[in-house]
Amino acid sequence: MSMQLPKPIADYIEANARLDLDGMVAFFSPDAVFIDNGKSFEGQEAIRHLFENEVIAVKAIFVPDTVREEGGNVIVEGPARGDFPGSPLRFTYRFTLSNGAIETLEVRL
Protein backbone atom coordinates (compact mmCIF):
# COMPACT_ATOMS: atom_id res chain seq x y z
CA MET A 1 0.00 0.00 0.00
CA SER A 2 1.62 3.27 -1.10
CA MET A 3 -0.56 5.68 0.88
CA GLN A 4 0.53 7.04 4.23
CA LEU A 5 -1.71 5.79 7.02
CA PRO A 6 -1.26 6.27 10.76
CA LYS A 7 0.31 3.14 12.27
CA PRO A 8 -2.75 1.73 14.11
CA ILE A 9 -4.84 2.07 10.93
CA ALA A 10 -2.15 0.54 8.70
CA ASP A 11 -1.67 -2.31 11.18
CA TYR A 12 -5.43 -2.94 11.39
CA ILE A 13 -5.73 -3.05 7.59
CA GLU A 14 -2.73 -5.40 7.33
CA ALA A 15 -4.28 -7.72 9.95
CA ASN A 16 -7.56 -7.66 8.00
CA ALA A 17 -5.69 -8.64 4.82
CA ARG A 18 -4.48 -11.75 6.70
CA LEU A 19 -7.95 -12.31 8.22
CA ASP A 20 -6.17 -12.20 11.59
CA LEU A 21 -8.97 -11.70 14.12
CA ASP A 22 -6.68 -11.15 17.12
CA GLY A 23 -4.55 -8.73 15.12
CA MET A 24 -7.56 -6.73 13.97
CA VAL A 25 -8.95 -6.32 17.49
CA ALA A 26 -5.53 -5.51 18.99
CA PHE A 27 -5.44 -2.03 17.44
CA PHE A 28 -8.65 -0.88 19.14
CA SER A 29 -8.62 0.73 22.57
CA PRO A 30 -10.36 -1.35 25.28
CA ASP A 31 -13.41 0.95 25.22
CA ALA A 32 -13.45 1.56 21.46
CA VAL A 33 -16.68 1.97 19.51
CA PHE A 34 -17.26 0.41 16.09
CA ILE A 35 -20.24 1.84 14.20
CA ASP A 36 -21.41 -0.37 11.35
CA ASN A 37 -23.98 1.44 9.18
CA GLY A 38 -25.44 3.14 12.27
CA LYS A 39 -25.31 0.18 14.68
CA SER A 40 -22.80 0.56 17.56
CA PHE A 41 -20.56 -2.12 19.05
CA GLU A 42 -18.79 -1.00 22.23
CA GLY A 43 -15.60 -2.52 23.62
CA GLN A 44 -13.13 -5.02 22.23
CA GLU A 45 -15.28 -8.08 22.96
CA ALA A 46 -18.27 -6.71 21.04
CA ILE A 47 -15.97 -5.68 18.18
CA ARG A 48 -14.35 -9.14 18.19
CA HIS A 49 -17.77 -10.79 17.95
CA LEU A 50 -18.74 -8.50 15.06
CA PHE A 51 -15.51 -9.27 13.20
CA GLU A 52 -15.92 -13.01 13.74
CA ASN A 53 -19.42 -12.99 12.25
CA GLU A 54 -19.20 -10.22 9.65
CA VAL A 55 -15.58 -10.20 8.47
CA ILE A 56 -13.82 -13.50 9.14
CA ALA A 57 -16.87 -15.66 8.34
CA VAL A 58 -17.20 -14.15 4.85
CA LYS A 59 -13.47 -13.52 4.27
CA ALA A 60 -14.09 -9.78 3.83
CA ILE A 61 -10.88 -7.93 3.04
CA PHE A 62 -10.84 -4.13 2.76
CA VAL A 63 -8.35 -2.61 0.30
CA PRO A 64 -8.05 1.16 0.74
CA ASP A 65 -7.45 3.32 -2.29
CA THR A 66 -7.92 6.84 -0.86
CA VAL A 67 -7.13 8.51 2.44
CA ARG A 68 -7.73 12.02 3.78
CA GLU A 69 -7.99 13.87 7.05
CA GLU A 70 -11.26 15.54 7.95
CA GLY A 71 -12.13 17.22 11.25
CA GLY A 72 -9.50 15.31 13.22
CA ASN A 73 -10.56 11.98 11.71
CA VAL A 74 -8.82 9.83 9.12
CA ILE A 75 -11.15 8.89 6.27
CA VAL A 76 -10.16 5.80 4.28
CA GLU A 77 -12.16 4.59 1.28
CA GLY A 78 -11.96 1.50 -0.88
CA PRO A 79 -13.55 -1.79 -1.85
CA ALA A 80 -14.02 -4.85 0.33
CA ARG A 81 -14.06 -8.24 -1.33
CA GLY A 82 -15.16 -11.54 0.10
CA ASP A 83 -17.79 -14.26 0.10
CA PHE A 84 -20.79 -11.97 0.53
CA PRO A 85 -23.58 -10.75 -1.77
CA GLY A 86 -22.58 -7.85 -4.01
CA SER A 87 -18.83 -8.32 -3.52
CA PRO A 88 -16.92 -6.15 -4.03
CA LEU A 89 -18.63 -3.30 -2.18
CA ARG A 90 -17.14 0.15 -1.68
CA PHE A 91 -16.85 1.36 1.92
CA THR A 92 -15.90 4.53 3.74
CA TYR A 93 -14.06 4.05 7.06
CA ARG A 94 -13.91 7.02 9.46
CA PHE A 95 -11.24 6.48 12.11
CA THR A 96 -10.74 8.46 15.30
CA LEU A 97 -7.44 7.75 17.03
CA SER A 98 -6.44 8.30 20.65
CA ASN A 99 -3.21 7.38 22.45
CA GLY A 100 -1.94 5.30 19.54
CA ALA A 101 -5.11 3.20 19.20
CA ILE A 102 -8.36 3.22 17.26
CA GLU A 103 -10.94 4.86 19.51
CA THR A 104 -13.82 4.94 17.02
CA LEU A 105 -14.33 3.37 13.60
CA GLU A 106 -17.45 4.22 11.64
CA VAL A 107 -18.06 2.16 8.50
CA ARG A 108 -20.56 3.09 5.81
CA LEU A 109 -21.39 1.81 2.35
Rank of each mutant, 00 (worst) to 15 (best):
residue 38 G to P: 07
residue 50 L to S: 06
residue 61 I to N: 01
residue 34 F to D: 04
residue 71 G to M: 02
residue 62 F to S: 05
residue 18 R to C: 04
residue 51 F to A: 09
residue 26 A to T: 09
residue 45 E to K: 12
residue 41 F to Y: 15
residue 33 V to M: 12
residue 35 I to N: 13
residue 58 V to F: 06
residue 50 L to G: 01
residue 75 I to N: 01
residue 56 I to G: 01
residue 73 N to S: 14
residue 36 D to Q: 10
residue 14 E to V: 11
residue 64 P to Y: 09
residue 77 E to I: 03
residue 55 V to A: 06
residue 33 V to Y: 02
residue 43 G to T: 07
residue 36 D to G: 04
residue 63 V to F: 01
residue 51 F to V: 08
residue 56 I to H: 00
residue 20 D to R: 03
residue 54 E to A: 14
residue 69 E to I: 03
residue 52 E to Y: 00
residue 51 F to E: 11
residue 68 R to L: 05
residue 51 F to Q: 07
residue 73 N to T: 11
residue 31 D to C: 02
residue 53 N to I: 03
residue 47 I to D: 02
residue 58 V to D: 01
residue 22 D to L: 03
residue 32 A to I: 12
residue 39 K to A: 13
residue 55 V to W: 03
residue 32 A to W: 08
residue 60 A to K: 07
residue 15 A to T: 06
residue 50 L to A: 07
residue 46 A to D: 12
residue 35 I to E: 14
residue 18 R to T: 06
residue 55 V to K: 01
residue 25 V to L: 10
residue 27 F to E: 14
residue 74 V to D: 07
residue 38 G to H: 07
residue 54 E to Y: 05
residue 15 A to D: 10
residue 29 S to E: 12
residue 76 V to Q: 03
residue 47 I to M: 01
residue 61 I to D: 00
residue 38 G to M: 09
residue 71 G to Q: 12
residue 56 I to P: 00
residue 56 I to S: 02
residue 52 E to T: 15
residue 23 G to F: 06
residue 53 N to R: 12
residue 48 R to G: 11
residue 68 R to F: 03
residue 47 I to H: 01
residue 60 A to G: 12
residue 67 V to K: 01
residue 41 F to K: 04
residue 24 M to L: 09
residue 45 E to P: 06
residue 48 R to A: 08
residue 70 E to W: 03
residue 54 E to Q: 14
residue 22 D to S: 13
residue 33 V to H: 01
residue 70 E to P: 00
residue 15 A to I: 07
residue 72 G to K: 01
residue 45 E to T: 13
residue 53 N to F: 01
residue 27 F to T: 13
residue 19 L to Y: 11
residue 29 S to F: 03
residue 40 S to F: 09
residue 28 F to V: 11
residue 38 G to E: 04
residue 26 A to S: 15
residue 34 F to R: 07
residue 64 P to K: 04
residue 61 I to A: 00
residue 50 L to Q: 10
residue 59 K to P: 03
residue 59 K to L: 03
residue 51 F to S: 05
residue 62 F to N: 03
residue 15 A to Q: 04
residue 42 E to W: 01
residue 60 A to D: 04
residue 49 H to C: 01
residue 27 F to P: 00
residue 77 E to A: 13
residue 33 V to D: 10
residue 19 L to A: 12
residue 31 D to T: 14
residue 59 K to C: 07
residue 67 V to P: 00
residue 45 E to L: 09
residue 38 G to T: 11
residue 72 G to S: 10
residue 27 F to K: 10
residue 36 D to L: 09
residue 46 A to I: 08
residue 17 A to P: 02
residue 52 E to W: 00
residue 18 R to M: 06
